[in-house]
Structures are given as C-alpha cells and as structure tokens.
C-alpha cells in the first residue's frame, strides 16, 4: 500500500509474466505486470469519461499526473467519473 512515483518503480510494460491484484472501486481486480500508470489503468479498464476523480490509497491523483503515478499490487484505487450539470 505505497504511493509509487515513476522514478522508483518499473513501468507495467516489463515483467509481463507477473500479475498484481488491486482493489478498484471496492472490487478485486487482477492484472498482468507489477505496476501500471493511472493512464494505463484507465485505458485497460475502458474508463472513457474525460473527467474522473482518481484516488490511490485515499490520495487524490491530479489529471496532469496520470502518466507518472503508478499503481501496484495491493493498492486501493477509486475511480469516479464526474458528470456535467448544475
């Protein structure tokens, strides 16, 4: 359950033989690799809404950081899309 920045982790493109389990919106999800960026997660999970609140282990990840913040085994991720209207 740690906060991973790209400088200290291996991107998800290597170690394909490994798998990781994360908790995404309160459901356990298994994926290949040992880590992936927030951007990669959104692509893999087909989260196509343009505006999404992302929290990793309770900490908010800003949209501008989606490429450089990585998610790893055991992380708890919340992804909530924001809808226009008010």
């Amino acid at each position: 359950m740690t906060w991973r920045w790209s400088a200290t982790t291996t991107p998800g493109t290597s170690h394909k033989e490994r798998t990781m389990k994360i908790c995404l919106n309160n459901k356990e999800v298994s994926m290949a690799g040992e880590s992936l960026s927030v951007r990669e997660l959104l692509t893999v999970m087909k989260f196509t809404f343009p505006m999404i609140i992302i929290k990793i282990n309770g900490r908010l990840v800003k949209k501008e950081d989606y490429e450089r913040v990585f998610i790893g085994d055991g992380d708890q991720v919340e992804a909530i899309h924001l809808i226009s209207g008010g």
């Binding site: 343009p50 999404i52 908010l60 949209k63």
Partner: peptide
C-alpha cells in the same frame, strides 16, 4: 465536469484542512 474536477483537485491539494462538497449527476 472539467470545472468540477479543477476545483476538487485544487481544494484537495491546497486546502487539506477544508471539506469540499461536490455534485455529480
């Protein structure tokens, strides 16, 4: 929605001591 995300991000980052009450849907 982009403005909603902007203020949620800004308040969460800059005002860790303040609550923000947002609406969606």
């Amino acid at each position: 929605a982009d403005m909603k995300l902007m203020i949620i991000e800004t308040v969460t980052e800059r005002f860790p001591d303040k609550f923000i009450i947002a609406a969606s849907g």
